[in-house]
Design a binder for these strands. Sequence first.
DNA 1: GTCTATACGCCGATAGAC
DNA 2: GTCTATCGGCGTATAGAC
Lengths: 192, 192
Amino acid sequence: MTDSPSQRPGKRERLVEAAVRAFHEQGVEKTTLADIARAADVPLGNVYYYFRSKDLLVEAAVEAHCDRLTALTNRLDALPDPAARLKALIEGWVGQRETAARFGCPFGTLATELDKRDDGLDLAAAQVMRALLDWVERQFGELGRPDARALAVELVAAYQGMSVLTNILRDPGLMAAQGARLTSWIDALAGS
Amino acid sequence: MTDSPSQRPGKRERLVEAAVRAFHEQGVEKTTLADIARAADVPLGNVYYYFRSKDLLVEAAVEAHCDRLTALTNRLDALPDPAARLKALIEGWVGQRETAARFGCPFGTLATELDKRDDGLDLAAAQVMRALLDWVERQFGELGRPDARALAVELVAAYQGMSVLTNILRDPGLMAAQGARLTSWIDALAGS
DNA sequence: GTCTATACGCCGATAGAC
DNA sequence: GTCTATCGGCGTATAGAC
């Protein structure tokens, strides 16, 4: 609401976007409000008009990840069959392998960092992760697998794990190779 | 070296141990030198006699992880066959599932955090990760698998991924279930 | 609503007595 | 070698003019 008429996205939106990016690239703890303000082209003092504390900006960043996930799954739901949806999900991950090699999974690294903080935002992050698991589980369920939940955990864990390794070793090729493995794994499961 | 004779472990060792623990539980960025000094029962100012900067303490913590890994693989090498070694490795991971649920993988979360820092310690962390991958690869090689490296990446990534999910969802049961899956996966690979 | 200037606390690091 | 006291800088947050 309340976008001023003849301007680029409102300051609030710019701040959240800058925060998401900075948290991904530098981590929450190393990111200062000055960093975010500069990236969003908003004066430092003015940040506090939109977010009364840094924690509230972190919370907004988590919500942004949640929205992003919802948008993604909505797009994937347009695909005809569940196997295609899962493979498209993997393809999306692999497509981000260069930034993953540099900064890790945008959501995974954030959630991991939140688990070491005092704020209660780790719970919100867990909710988002559960939403992803639920969606993946639904796809495996539509494929007729009774062990859909376990397979969902296996797939998402494989992604998080290859993100960690890709990041630590700075090797996007690792994610490409593991992505290919997961894709043929989906094919094998769907074909059986 | 230079442990004073009739005393508990030297201050340097206590500081490193406290640092490893604090970095795991709170993260590097949130951990202050005062935290470490207190946990090690060393006066704050004295820390700088042993480590001229916080970065050097972080470096020492990475080296400690490296030593810990070497000690582990040495122990596992005493086991008769490679499949048993790999399953013992997994068993060790699962045995740590309660702390993993609370704080994640001690080394994975540290390495991930180092990747967002300016110091060059991410390279040292990558070396340690590579050492683990090399050892696991050797086991798969001894099992006669030509795709030993890919399997090693798959196993370690699975562990890192389930650590992330276990941590975010605060669910040690997830790691137990995935560990069981990996164990029977090893059995299937070794039996074929 | 917007922005500047600044208060205030915390933390890494140092000085220097013992 | 050990420890206390403290400096200096940075980062969150606020006060208050416009």
